[in-house]
Design a protein around this nucleic acid. Structure first.
Length: 571
RNA sequence: GCGGUGGUAGUCUAGCCUGGUCUAGGACACCGGCCUCCCAAGCCGGUGACCCGGGUUCAAAUCCCGGCCACCGCACCA
């Protein structure tokens, strides 16, 4: 048992439960691993985090979307989650330990097991007599454990659905409508803030690995040929701490440079990617994560999700848990849209207009039905259709042969030059249809929430307090009569009520001595306490006490809202 | 999932080994009152707990079994 007061994590956990931030869910029924409740103060902070993200992307002109948590199976077959969001497991019949079957087979047989079925893996294990690496016991059948929660839609068991393991698919499946909303012009961005679910085998570490969690996922659709961000200049001088793949493999440590340099030196693929790295960093700073606790780590190839070819995690440092992935910026290419295009048959392309319409010449060849009709009878139409389906190259060959030999045999029919009608036609092509590529900054909300609290917790000799960024505080101002006596009580209550009406999250508190109350509000991160003292009835002034410095300034009651707004929100 | 440790009011804990005066004690917090004119003061009163389910026993917070949860290590983390 950790002695009270020695472990920051313990103090924080205690504070979070006691003061209404967050705690494990379903307590009265014994709890359930991987689920967390947000209390009144926690829910407020969480909402403020979400709001910072929302505001930042709305400022970029992005659109917000909201789609269902429950999703029909087809969507995740298309997205690859049914197939790839699984771990093949195998259990030792003797000692009961479970292993990743694919890892085991790969290790022993030194072959690639990518995409192998459970049956195939089982067979290989039997054929090669692979045993339990721990005790040497016999291994059972391989089965796939899918990390998605399954459910059924409607009263019959034939309509399978899943709780979404990421919010992103809700955006991809809506691409046609969103593209229309964006008036067919790339790039555009869409984001969704909502719940996602993953049936983790063994969730741990408090609220850092949950089975149900909140994400803010941003899908930016762009033309892969246009990867220069028009506003990169605004962010090019921002310094970032990078931990690229090479530095991880060779243990070279982190490097720091401006984003401009990072792109120039090839660490970051282009200014488009770099721009959103800057955005993510700014959002985290705006939430109140200290700059020196933020780094960008490039995922190793084996860590990457099935849809991504390059991903940078934005990690925040925890005193307790080390570097924690809080945001992932994934280059998803055209993976998702192409898959949905193929599976659904929907046209998920965007027309990229050429600067000038292109004049494209091409051959149009068909049979002269008047001549060949009587000859081929029933086959005439069939062969005509066949020829018309040929591509440019095949048609050119046909014409060449006809020019040279004057005749050709197709499907056993001898045809001469005059049996064909050959036309060279010109077509105006306005542009090219492409499947857009996707860049995805994906924010966890619960992790930054925890890391914000952990990084804000200050332990001093005579008090423990949350040095939250002032505008993130769940209670923004506490109004306190110096003593619970009239007329101070009435004046204080009026001041409180007026601050509420002015839009502040405020509380009124007259219980206990003034010092005790200050400590009480310091503990939950309230940046300012307004105290009504004996001078107030005389000249209508009150004091504003600063959480961090404990210093007080005296202001007129009428100036209070404006002054507090300036102090808390800086405007 | 495996192994280890643990689970007593909102929080921390005493009691458990050696079953019975445990009607479960304390501190802090919380609520009501008194007092109090600036940084956790004091006084009076009050609310509130043996994780869940079985078993052993005349008797279980205490012993045994199972489950759940938490922490640590292993495995896992698309």
């Amino acid at each position: 048992m950790v002695v009270m007061g020695t472990d920051k994590y313990e103090i924080l956990q205690d504070l979070m439960r006691r003061r209404g931030f967050a705690w494990g869910s379903f307590e009265i029924y014994g709890g359930a691993r991987g689920f967390y409740d947000y209390g009144p103060l926690g829910a407020t902070i969480k909402r403020k985090i979400e709001q910072k993200i929302r505001e930042a992307f709305i400022k970029e002109g992005f659109f917000e979307l909201e789609t269902p948590d429950i999703t029909p199976e087809k969507v995740f077959i298309a997205s690859g989650h049914v197939e790839k969001f699984v771990d093949p497991l195998v259990e030792c019949k003797k000692c009961g330990l479970r292993f990743r079957a694919d890892h085991l087979v790969e290790e022993v047989l030194e072959i690639d097991t990518e995409g192998m079925s459970a049956e195939h893996l089982s067979q290989l294990i039997k054929e090669h007599g692979i045993k339990c690496p721990e005790c040497g016991g016999e291994l059972g059948e391989v089965w796939y454990f899918n990390l998605m929660f399954e459910t059924f839609i409607g009263p019959y068991k034939d309509k399978k659905g899943y709780l979404r393991p990421e919010t992103a698919q809700g955006i991809f499946v809506n691409f046609k409508r969103l593209n229309a909303f964006a008036r067919n012009r790339l790039p555009f961005g869409v984001f969704q803030i909502g719940k996602a679910y993953r049936n983790e085998i063994s969730p741990r570490q408090g609220m850092l690995r949950l089975r149900e969690f909140t994400q803010a996922e941003v899908e930016i659709f762009f033309n892969p040929k246009e990867t220069t961000h028009p506003h990169f200049d605004e962010v090019k001088d921002i310094a970032v701490r990078l931990y690229p793949i090479e530095n991880q493999l060779k243990d070279l440590g982190m490097i720091e440079m401006t984003l401009e340099e990072a792109v120039k030196r090839g660490y970051v693929m282009n200014t488009f990617f770099a721009y959103y790295m800057a955005m993510v960093k700014n959002i985290l700073l705006d939430i109140g994560i200290p700059e020196d606790k933020i780094r960008f780590r490039q995922q190793l190839p084996e860590e990457r999700a099935h849809y991504s070819s390059d991903t940078w995690d934005v990690e925040i440092h925890s005193e307790r848990f080390g570097w924690i992935e809080c945001v992932g910026i994934a280059y998803r290419g055209d993976y998702d849209l192409s898959r949905h295009k193929k599976m659904s048959g929907a046209d998920l392309t965007v027309l990229i207009h050429y600067d000038e319409p292109k004049i494209v010449k091409h051959l149009k060849v068909s049979l002269n039905m008047k001549r060949v009709g009587p000859k081929l009878k029933g086959d005439a139409k069939r062969i005509n259709d066949l020829i018309r389906s040929w591509d440019e190259e095949k048609l050119r060959n046909l014409v060449e042969v006809l020019e040279k030999d004057g005749k050709i045999t197709i499907e056993g029919y001898k045809l001469v030059k005059d049996d064909f009608i050959v036309k060279e036609i010109e077509e105006k092509v306005m542009g090219e249809k492409i499947v857009p590529h996707v860049l995805e900054p994906s924010f966890g909300i619960d992790r930054p929430f925890y890391l914000l609290l952990e990084n804000s917790l200050v332990i001093e000799d005579d008090r423990v307090y949350l040095k939250l960024k002032k505008d993130m505080a769940p209670i923004e101002v506490a109004v306190l009569p110096l003593v619970a006596k009239e007329p101070l009580k009435s004046i204080a209550y009026d001041v409180f009520r007026n601050l509420q009406k002015a839009g502040f999250i405020a509380v009124y508190d007259e219980k206990d001595t003034i010092g005790r109350r200050y400590v009480r509000y310091d503990e939950i991160g309230t940046p300012y306490c307004v105290t009504i003292d004996n001078q107030t009835p005389i000249d209508s002034t009150v004091t504003i006490r600063d959480r961090d410095t404990r210093e007080q300034v005296r202001v007129k009651i009428e100036d209070l809202p404006e002054k507090l707004r300036e102090l808390i929100f800086g405007s």
